[in-house]
Design a binder for these strands. Structure first.
Lengths: 201, 201
DNA sequence: TAGTTTTTAGACAGTGAGTTGATTATTTAT
DNA sequence: ATAAATAATCAACTCACTGTCTAAAAACTA
């Protein structure tokens, strides 16, 4: 092992990484071959194996930073209190932060969450968001005796719903601001989707 | 072309199909090879190519029946009126039907929607459910002037949320009855998730 | 049973994966 | 500026899977 800050290594890894991202956008993760990546990155195929075990390893390493960041944002920044949930402001602030982060990493996030992505990767991210947001924040606030539906389905409902909205936003090219998206998402969840859609008055 | 009801053909196709389903459960769709499938199905690899172009073709053909059924269930059975949405009963009936169908085809549905599935396939199914359920039923009922959030995000929210709950249910092994699941889902959507979770009283 | 069709076994070329060893190019530290 | 270190390259190799094709064997239908 040599200095990891060797400029050749940095250059090579960057080339590989950005080749992967642009290729995932083109044809999806599963359809990629190592050869595709190294061709696009203009490096020898052997070189790839000096840095990564295979394309999955490459993706994992790429995703690692993202998931750490996200986890930090979700847990460090805020711990909700019961009062926060009675008002829309506090969760709103968290959601804004998340959207801002997604916006800053839109290209990669789109490859993870977009239609060309990979379910296992999606689930990895879902799990992180889930545990950070729910287990540590929402869960303690929910009184079992008030539950009209099983907690796990409530959780699946919210987690998937939020993911769906984020996915749609990324597909659209992130036209709305993080603040606007946070407003949309908190409205949908706090007021209920049908109310937010104007079906109930 | 000979009689398509030749018993050898029926046997072979059935063997291939069920081999595929069980292998997807094991290792996921992308990891499968044609050889895996034919080994499991105990047929010659050449035989596979007599019936299918490749594994994607096999999956498409397998999914075709499912999607047609689902589309029929969602469109034929019901057309919602504005009054239906003021009450929870009518949508409830549709949702029960859907869960019943999923239950009857749980093995395959789990491979499509489960963690080992494939995003493209999920999207295909989402699109079908989406167009049948929303474009023809919900959409006309929503008055633009009452919208608090853009319609497309409302749509993404609901579609993804329902999908998430169905996924969770399949992962759990379909413990709840279709009626129970329909109750859960309609409660979450009609009352709003936080109300259904007992956060609001 | 006779005639037809499916399945089989095996071989084929083509492609990507992952590894290796010798060589060249670049970088860092002196 | 130069030497030592090490990263990248190139070519070649094994392996596994794909998709196609043939001729022979097996199973089906009528």
């Amino acid at each position: 092992m040599a200095p990891a800050d060797d400029r050749r290594v940095i250059r090579t890894k960057a080339a590989i990484r950005s080749a992967m991202i642009s290729l995932i956008e083109e044809k999806g993760f599963e359809a990629l071959s190592v050869k595709d990546i190294t061709d696009k990155a203009n490096i020898n195929r052997s070189t790839f194996y000096l840095h990564y075990v295979d394309k999955f390893d490459l993706f994992d390493q790429t995703l690692e930073g993202i998931t750490q960041d996200l986890h930090r944002i979700l847990t460090e920044i805020i711990t909700l209190t019961p009062d926060d949930l009675q008002d829309i402001k506090m969760p709103y602030a968290v959601v804004v932060k998340v959207f801002e982060y997604f916006l800053a990493n839109a290209a990669l996030m789109k490859t993870v969450l977009g239609t060309k992505g990979n379910i296992a990767l999606q689930n990895k991210m879902k799990k992180i968001m889930w545990s950070a947001l729910f287990e540590k924040n929402f869960s303690p606030l929910i009184k079992k005796e008030n539950l009209v539906v099983p907690f796990e389905y409530f959780a699946s409902y919210i987690a998937a719903a939020h993911f769906g909205v984020i996915q749609q936003w990324l597909e659209n090219g992130c036209r709305e601001t993080p603040e606007e998206m946070a407003r949309i998402l908190t409205n949908l969840t706090f007021r209920g989707p049908l109310f937010a859609a104007g079906v109930f008055h």
